[in-house]
Design a binder for these strands. Structure first.
Lengths: 219, 219
DNA sequence: TAGATTGTTAATCGATTAACAATC
DNA sequence: TAGATTGTTAATCGATTAACAATC
């Protein structure tokens, strides 16, 4: 299989979702132009992206929705069960744990970990919260390929080291730090504050009228 | 001010954070090489990015930590209070609401909204949950420049329309849909499932040994 | 001064967009 | 058939990397 550029890879998933919704609408065929309209993307780019995984379209017709949907599902591995542990059972960790949208794409949370003694031992949605001291053995024994890191920044590297040592392959990192890990480990940084910062910059640039607060009124 | 390319803009914030931590370590000066090491980035890229906002370094010395930190804070507008409403008080909405890391960068949540009648009226951290029917007027009266969208996908466009109509300038969109809004509105899509999908693909590609589950064992 | 590091220009790389022949 | 749409090649665009003169 050809190498897929990272931005194209991300879009493939977006296409997958548009196909899911098209399928629900009962559409059996869809063109790159129509997908482009729904996603605000260039149709040429969509066609190009899709050729990274093969030729699925028919000139004059477009793409068969169910066919393309299944191809993308296979390529992205959304069918495969991806077992994962969550480390850091704060609000964000819980949000990820309980979000049904992820399970739909094959995510299966098999363990929850925290180092807060008031949390350890609690049972959440059927899963007990374990102590981080058990994390390494747990990953090894259960052969867990993915770790979801939702601990505070200062703890992140330490936890990552434990996971890498235990043979984890991928880390979904929500902590705002650059993890030092071996090249073989896939890390996806999901640093939400970056989004806030870019919005902040844009608000300033755009001259949003609502950014001028009424400082003259006293109450 | 020169236009800043989007990827560079995102990195500027990352630099800001490294400077915060350097400051806490008591470092007064830092070079692009040192920042590059900590962030796993090319020093040339860091220097280039920094020139988008001016010349702050001294040859032979590097960058003065507090100086550069403050420059970046100004450029990104992190000092400015950015008032925002959260629409959709599920777990993710609550996680964002209660995360102290965002307040540090100027985010101030001034309103919570939901359309679930069992939630409306509850008070969370001092803020009552309001009905979405009040959203438009609230934004107009309080002159709220930013909306944080954490509703389920099917509701997202409808809520976005209300916000746009009320004069909002920026939308931080966590719903997995492409919003149709006028060009003047800044939208930041934070579609977490995209991260999951790319990790999924990488896990498959990399041949992670832990992805081969023991299907031969019966129990 | 000598040498390290910046700011900047030029070269490279990669991704997007445009154009169009092939095709159904 | 005629015409719409794909797959693909070529052209453009933008971002990254390399190189180096300026500088402290």
């Amino acid at each position: 299989m050809k190498k897929i550029p990272k931005p194209a890879l991300e879009r493939l998933f977006i296409y997958y979702r548009v196909l899911l919704s098209a399928e629900q609408n009962g559409e059996t065929v869809i063109s790159s132009v129509e997908m482009g309209k729904r996603l605000d993307l260039d149709p040429a780019q969509i066609r190009k992206d899709l050729t990274y995984c093969g030729e699925f379209g028919k000139p004059r017709i477009g793409y068969r929705v169910d066919r393309l949907k299944n191809e993308l599902k296979n390529i992205l591995g959304l069918e495969e069960k991806k077992q994962a542990v969550i480390i850091g059972v704060g609000r964000l960790g819980m949000a990820i744990y309980s979000y049904p949208g992820f399970a739909k794409f094959g995510l299966e949370i098999v363990g929850l970990f925290d180092n807060d003694p008031t949390k350890v031992g609690l049972v959440l949605g059927g899963e007990p919260i374990r102590n981080i001291s058990e994390l390494g053995d747990f990953i090894r024994e259960k052969r867990v390929p993915m770790g979801i890191l939702t601990v505070p920044a200062p703890a992140a590297q330490r936890v990552a080291d434990i996971m890498v040592d235990a043979g984890i392959c991928a880390i979904w990192n929500f902590a705002p730090v650059t993890l030092k890990v071996p090249d073989r480990i896939t890390v996806r940084n999901e640093d939400l504050a970056v989004g806030l910062a870019t919005l902040s910059w844009n608000l300033l640039q755009s001259g949003c009228p609502y950014m001028e607060r009424n400082t003259d009124t006293k109450e």
